[in-house]
Structure formats: C-alpha cells, structure tokens
Design a protein around this nucleic acid. Structure first.
Lengths: 203, 203
DNA sequence: GACCAAATATGACCGCAGTCATAAATGACC
DNA sequence: GGTCATTTATGACTGCGGTCATATTTGGTC
C-alpha cells in the first residue's frame, strides 16, 4: 500500500472513530463537522472529501451493523432445527444485538431514513440499500422454502409475500421498540408476532 | 372571534397554503422559509411564531391526512360484513387514498421520522403521535374482537399482538411502496399479506 | 534532485434554518 | 381617544452544513 493510500485509510478511520465517539457523547445533531475535523486533526473541507454529507456517516455505521446481522443469519441457516425456531432464533438474536445499543440504533434508523429520501433516484446508496433489503428477504425465503420441503409450512404459500410479512413484523417491532421510552422487550414482542404469522388468526 | 385571533388564523392558513403549494412544486428541501414568508407576505421571524421549525409544518399536513383516515375507519366499522373483509377494505381504502399523492406522503412519512426523533421526550408532538398510533391499533382491535364474537377469528388470539401485526403489515407495505420507483400496487400487496395474517403459514 | 501531473488538503465563503432584541399592533380600561 | 400591558411582527444576526478555488503533497520519470 502506497503512502498515499495509507494516509487516506488513516484519515478515513480517524474521522470514523472520532465521529462515532462524539455522536455517542453528545448526539448527532449536537456534534458539528467542525468539531469532528478539529478532533481528527484535519481541515473542515477534508471531511467532505471522505463523506459527502454529515449524515452519510450514519450509512457507514449502519453497514457495519448489517454485516454482523448477515453473519448471524448464515449461522442460523446451517443449524438443524424446526424452521420456525430457526427464524425466531435468528430474529431474536438480531433483536438482542440491537438491544445493546438502542441510542445509536435510533440515530442510524431514523436519520438514515431522511438520507434515503433526499438522495436522488440513481444514487448507489439507494440501490445498495435495496439490495440489502432484498438479500434479507431472500434469506428469509430460503428458511421458508426449507420449511415447505420439511412439511412445516403450507404448500400453497407465496414465499415472497410471506417473507415480506416476516420482515414487516420484524421492522415494526423494531420501530415500536425504538419509539418506546420504557425498556419493553423487543425480542419478546417480535416472538409473539412470529407465532401469529405461523398460526394465523382465522378459524 | 377578535380581530387579533382572526388575523392569527389568517396568517397561519396563508403559511399553510403557500408552503403546501411550494413543497409540491419544488420539493421540501428546495423550498426555503424565506420563500414561504415572502410569498405569504410576512417577515421571516413571523413564520417561527407559528411553526417551531420548517419540518414541523409536515406534522400539520400529516394530521390533516390522518383525520381523514380515521373517518374512513369509522365508516367501515359500522358496515355489516365479514371482519376480514372489513379490515381489508379499510386498509385498502387507506392505501388508495395514499396512492393519490405519493410524493407528499413520502415527505410526510420520512421527513416526519426525523422530527419525531429529534423532539425531546416530553414533547406533546411525540405523545400525540403515540396516541394516534394507539387509536389506530385499538380500532383494529375492535374489528378483531367483533371477529372473535362472530366466530371468524380464533378465540385464543392476543388481540393486541394481532392488531399490531396487522399494523406492521400495513406500515411495511406502505414503506416498500414509498421506496419503489415503479408504481407497484400498494393495496394489492397489502391485501395478500392480510391473507397471511388470517390464514397463517404453518401447517 | 528537478520537474510534472494527479491526488489530496485547505479554509474563506455561501445559503439557509432558526434566534432574539426591538418595534408595531391590539384590546382592555378609564 | 388617551394610556398601558400583552400579544404579535420584524429583520439583522448567528451557527452550521456544504462548496470551491487555491495550495500542498505524492509518486512517477528523467
């Protein structure tokens, strides 16, 4: 690695670390780019050579988290257990992982939303996000297909719709939990809703 | 109504109208408070006497929309039909109503999120939102209870969890649809997912 | 080392959301 | 209609995110 690339990586990492620390300390809104750059020992303009906006930093934090989640998922998939349990375990593991750092997650989730919207249609960020979303749903689909094969899930079900429904439950529980001030359990709530998806409410 | 109150209402309405027009024309981000106030014939500071932030305007737009939705819901509730149909009809009506004005809704939904997060814990806005959410879920609960009474829904079901699941499906379909560039149908997607909630995917 | 092109860093500068001290308008009371 | 307290309007000002023309650093070539 050339000196140039080394320095580049260095600067990028320093911005990343410093901003992560400051966001946790003082919150996203209360941290200025000036502070970040001062703390990181660079000029303000330099920041924008690395990250197009202050908010875009959050994307990178989010990617970090999501990489970890996919690794959990792949672990679960290789286990030998009833599909319902595997899905539940997977989503509960994700939930528990999130529960560790609610505040940062709030930032990531909600600030991120705005970013998604303001970015133009062609933006790679938007496409990437879409891909991640699809990957998530596809993996849930794989779980479900296995369930069909093992006779644990009805044959006629549209797996895409079903996976999206699971995804919906998951995200909604997440949002509810993020909004709640009390420490109601994300994982318990979600678990109950997965039961509903499996068993249905109709007679 | 005194002259003072009259003028106040007038100014408030003018800001509301002008900003709605400008947001639709040029988008939320591209509309400045300066423009709004100039168009409305007031000074910039005056704007902030009526709305604490530019984003807070979106809340008021949203309230408008939501009032309408609750009225649809109450209509549906009084009908005589299978509960599943009533819920479906209700949610599809909401969906169709939304489909009319996707762009504004995007603004309302996503920009709004950020607002929610940045507002402090005690804020009335946050409480109000929570109440609306609860009201929505409670009304779904009423539908479901009727279903239980009429023998259309299993007896053992936790109605709160079930309502929240329906709510989750609804919101998720909404989000997916808002993100999609293509005009995939929000209402059709949601309808399929409601079937899943009723029938379950397990054998 | 001298020279050059490309990559990277810099900070003065700009536009906009939001503030605040001050001014104007209103209505109650005499 | 004069006086005064309260409410509402005003726009210069501040702070921050983001830009851009310019300066500096890097690494290849001789």
């Amino acid at each position: 690695m050339s000196l140039r690339e080394k320095k580049k990586q260095d600067t990028r990492n320093r911005i990343f670390e410093v901003s992560g620390k400051l966001f946790k300390d003082k919150g996203f809104e209360n941290t200025t780019v000036d502070e970040i750059t001062k703390e990181a020992g660079i000029a303000k303009g330099t920041f924008f050579n690395y990250f197009p906006t202050k908010e875009s930093l959050l994307c990178y934090f989010k990617e970090h988290k999501e990489a970890f989640i996919f690794s959990i998922m792949e672990n679960q998939m290789s286990l030998n257990a009833p599909v319902k349990e595997k899905i539940k375990n997977f989503l509960v593991l994700v939930a528990e992982y999130y529960e560790k750092d609610k505040e940062l997650l709030k930032l990531l989730f909600f600030e991120h939303k705005r970013l998604i919207m303001s970015s133009d249609q062609q933006s790679t960020e938007k496409k990437q996000r879409h891909q991640r979303q699809e990957r998530f749903i596809n993996m849930l689909s794989v779980f479900l297909r296995e369930g069909v094969d093992k006779g644990e899930i009805k044959k006629g079900i549209d797996l895409k719709i079903a996976s999206e429904s699971l995804n919906a439950i998951y995200f909604h529980s997440l949002i509810i939990w993020l909004h709640s001030d009390t420490d109601s359990s994300f994982s318990r709530d979600m678990s109950a809703k997965i039961d509903i998806i499996f068993e249905g409410i109709g007679v």
